[in-house]
Simulated assay, not measured.
Amino acid sequence: MKTISYPRKSAMLLVLVLILALLGNPATKAASIEDKPVSKARTTWLWHTALIQSSSSELLNFTKSQGVGIIYLQISTKVDLASYRSFIRQASEMGIEVHALNGAPDWALAASRPKLDAFMKWINDYQQQAAPEEKLKGIHVDIEPYLLPIWKTDYDTLVTEWQDNVDALVRQSADLELPLSAALPFWLDNYKVPDSEQTLSSWMISRFESVTLMSYRDSAQAIYDTAKTEFAEGESMNKKIYTGVETKPSNEGNFITFYEEGSQVLNEQLALLEQLGGTQTSFGGIAVHDLVGWMNLVQQDQSM
């Protein structure tokens, strides 16, 4: 997935228009699936953090209507603390948890440790000031160092530094008494930890409370199949594995995303994926990437 730090004003306006169109359309409720009970088994990412300042009710109403129990909200220092407190309080009242989200490929590097520390300090400072119903309930990181050139030129050094940074995050999240989760590609089982026969996926799963696989495919069976190794690794460690689905356009091919198939097919495949995943004790649920893309997909279908 691609980390979006701070969207441009024009892009933000477009997103806002789409959200208002989606939630303001009288046909929306009838056209969408019925409200599902809120469950931690469905999660979603919200990268467009500034939207919580203007569209929190719309975002949360949609999230609840889709049965989502956890929102991974990217932390932006450009968003005022009052907006975080208000958004999280509203989410709490609806039974939805908000987890702090951040990350970038270079977060795997030792030189980037100050960035990780600053993120964790922000969370600590926020938690100290927030009322109980305004507190974050977890931390989610999306690092993706395989996007760096060094992945191909000095794999051992990069992965060793990545492991050290992950361990630092684990220690700090424990101090904060918050569960730590991460987004990971589904193919890390093809790589080994330096100087070890342990798969990199197994090592990562062992460190986090849960992991979300970017198992992006446009059918439930294909998504499930990509996660089989990680399901087994998670089961051996009593860890939960979430399967990720994509709703936004992808330059990697149409088979990656449900963007072409639309929200009705997405809903059908999510239900089937939950059935397939239910056969695995390590299956945690489904993570939909991302909230704005998901809302736009529903709006796209309603405008046809």
Score class of each variant (00 low, 15 high):
residue 111 A to I: 11
residue 64 K to F: 02
residue 115 K to A: 11
residue 293 G to C: 02
residue 140 H to N: 06
residue 231 F to D: 05
residue 284 G to I: 08
residue 248 K to M: 12
residue 65 S to A: 15
residue 62 F to R: 06
residue 116 L to G: 11
residue 37 P to W: 06
residue 226 T to F: 01
residue 132 P to A: 06
residue 219 S to P: 01
residue 68 V to D: 01
residue 198 Q to V: 07
residue 261 E to S: 15
residue 221 Q to H: 02
residue 283 F to C: 08
residue 110 A to K: 15
residue 232 A to W: 01
residue 246 E to D: 07
residue 278 G to I: 10
residue 184 L to P: 02
residue 85 R to P: 03
residue 257 T to F: 05
residue 107 W to T: 04
residue 302 Q to F: 08
residue 191 Y to C: 07
residue 186 F to A: 10
residue 136 L to W: 07
residue 70 I to W: 03
residue 24 G to W: 08
residue 269 Q to S: 05
residue 13 L to S: 14
residue 72 Y to N: 13
residue 62 F to H: 10
residue 96 I to P: 08
residue 274 E to P: 02
residue 157 T to W: 02
residue 48 H to D: 15
residue 286 I to T: 10
residue 259 Y to V: 09
residue 43 T to Q: 14
residue 236 S to T: 14
residue 220 A to S: 10
residue 227 A to I: 00
residue 272 L to C: 00
residue 152 K to W: 06
residue 28 T to W: 12
residue 177 E to T: 11
residue 187 W to P: 04
residue 230 E to L: 01
residue 37 P to Y: 08
residue 64 K to L: 02
residue 4 I to M: 12
residue 5 S to N: 14
residue 241 I to G: 06
residue 279 T to G: 08
residue 79 V to M: 03
residue 126 Y to I: 07
residue 298 V to K: 09
residue 194 P to G: 01
residue 234 G to C: 04
residue 181 S to I: 08
residue 141 V to R: 07
residue 95 G to C: 08
residue 45 W to H: 02
residue 152 K to A: 11
residue 279 T to M: 09
residue 21 A to D: 12
residue 180 L to W: 06
residue 211 V to Q: 03
residue 294 W to T: 05
residue 246 E to Q: 12
residue 43 T to P: 00
residue 58 E to A: 13
residue 250 S to C: 05
residue 264 Q to D: 14
residue 201 S to E: 13
residue 190 N to C: 06
residue 169 L to M: 14
residue 172 Q to G: 00
residue 207 R to W: 02
residue 120 M to Q: 08
residue 15 V to P: 01
residue 57 S to T: 08
residue 4 I to F: 11
residue 290 D to W: 05
residue 293 G to Y: 02
residue 208 F to I: 03
residue 154 D to W: 04
residue 26 P to E: 09
residue 58 E to V: 00
residue 189 D to P: 04
residue 214 M to A: 04
residue 61 N to H: 13
residue 16 L to C: 10
residue 39 S to F: 04
residue 241 I to W: 07
residue 299 Q to Y: 10
residue 163 Q to A: 02
